[in-house]
């Protein structure tokens, strides 16, 4: 038992994360932590740096600086020193990620999409990986699509496959980058239902979303980002009904139409 397993201790911790694209500061000194099993939604206007921050967490974007820790795996990025791929891998392995545009591999069947990384990254045998894939596909309601190519699946189905693909690697934390933004609302609902179930099972989740209902009903905390910085964080009901920051108020009144 490491010290981070104490009740309430941060399980995922990002501190002082800053990311710059040229002169534009996309993420400004963001510090955020999640307890084990906690679900945190990041909301905020477009271009606020929410997705960029999420990509910094699993180092798909290398931040200019910042410290990241998941459980007992940590990595500190200092200005001017790009971390090497092999230093990034251990952290990335603990994080599953789901993208706005699903990003399934179009040349592989649904089953192979979910199995590939299990075999290549975790070293599972093909039979073992595919058995695990089938149980996950069954869980997201898509066992019947195992042999289909992603192009033959609807957007909602593709996103559920993408969730199964990320879960297949047994991540400690799941990152969701606007998972329903590319979907029609009714199709998005299937995806949100899977996410809700996952949250109910105790998965630690960090979700960038425009789904205010999900943020309010499923997350334990909401973090509001504006212009690359966290301006407000708190319990969903408190942030939604009594926001303290003027930018949160204007953002919420725009999205909630009040």
């Amino acid at each position: 038992m490491g010290p981070d397993r104490r009740a309430g201790a941060a399980f995922l911790e990002a501190s002082g994360v800053t990311m710059r694209f040229g002169d534009h500061v996309a993420v400004r000194d963001v510090t955020l932590s999640l307890a084990r099993g906690e679900v945190v939604s990041i909301i905020g206007p477009s271009g606020a740096g929410k997705s960029t921050f999420l990509r910094c967490v699993n180092l798909l974007e290398i931040p200019e600086q910042g410290s990241l820790r998941v459980g007992d795996t940590s990595l500190t990025v200092r200005p001017g020193a790009k971390p090497r791929e092999k230093d990034i891998q251990p952290l990335r392995r603990k994080l599953g990620m789901v993208f706005q545009n699903f990003n399934l591999f179009p040349h592989l069947t649904v089953l192979r999409n979910v199995s590939l990384a299990q075999e290549r990254v975790l070293g599972r045998s093909r039979a073992e990986a595919e058995a695990r894939s089938m149980s996950l596909l069954d869980r997201v309601g898509l066992a019947g699509k195992a042999g289909a190519y992603p192009g033959r699946c609807s957007g909602g189905q593709q996103q559920r496959v993408a969730i199964a693909r990320a879960l297949a690697l047994d991540p400690a934390v799941m990152l969701f980058d606007e998972p329903t933004s590319a979907l029609d609302p009714e199709v998005g609902a299937e995806v949100l239902a899977v996410m809700k179930e996952l949250a109910g099972e105790g998965m630690t989740m960090l979700v960038v979303t425009h789904e205010m209902a999900f943020a309010r009903d499923v997350s334990d905390r909401i973090v509001v980002m504006v212009d690359g910085a966290v301006v407000e964080a708190g319990e969903p009901r408190q942030v939604m009904s009594d926001p303290s920051h003027p930018r949160t108020r204007s953002f919420l009144s725009a999205v909630l139409g009040r």
């Binding site: 994080l95 990003n103 590939l116 990320a166």
Partner: peptide, 11 residues
């Protein structure tokens, strides 16, 4: 996106 997804999977 293909590149990002395969990186995120740790390949």
């Amino acid at each position: 996106g293909q590149w990002l997804a395969s990186k995120a999977l740790g390949l």
